[in-house]
Amino acid sequence: MAVASLPQQHAEHAEGGVDRFYEETRDLRLTGFLFFLFSDVVLFSAFIFAYLYLRNSGQSWPPPGIARLDVAFAAWNSVVLFGSGATMHYALENWKHGNFNKYAGMLIATIVLGIAFLGGQAYEYTHLYFVDKVSWAGSGIFGASFFTLTGMHGFHVAVGVVYLTVLLLQSIHGVYTKDKHFGLTAGTLYWHFVDIIWVVLFSIFYLI
């Protein structure tokens, strides 16, 4: 991908130790990436609005005949995901300070925690489906809103796990340097974004 290979190709622009071309394209890419995350927030917001709207259109929630969600397990699973946010933060910090080994350890921990969260979600889905008999299409607006939103989020986590794995491999191959690591910054932003969305989803599905 061109994003990763830019810094090496334009080394000739460097003046006085500062690669102006890199700095300016980094600025563009950072702004663009933040706009991308913002529009993703809007996509989630559309479904969150739909969920809250449907939830308030009925008399009770969950609708009659559907068991309440398991808060204890979800709290534990949320902590797993939030923990991965913290490890991701320290992965980037260690990269900035040049501690490659600590960086790699933290990034691997993030990936493992992300996979653990997905595993937890898979467990929760199977439990809902087989024990509580709640399904995507067959349980009215409850199943529709819950599985659509958490599924969208789980998809984002899965994409993030792949993304972070690619970043790990790229950094092992020396694509990034101590000063030029926009890919890692973007990965961290994305992963934090996925965490923050879960803060909202956890609150609206399990807490209110």
Binding site: L54, P63, A137, G140, I141, G143, F147
Partner: peptide, 19 residues
């Protein structure tokens, strides 16, 4: 068949209009 808008399954046609 995931119900969002079909009133017979608890959905709301008005939700579509809002969105």
């Amino acid at each position: 068949g995931v119900p969002f808008f079909d009133p017979t399954k608890g959905g709301s046609p008005l939700l579509w209009q809002h969105m």
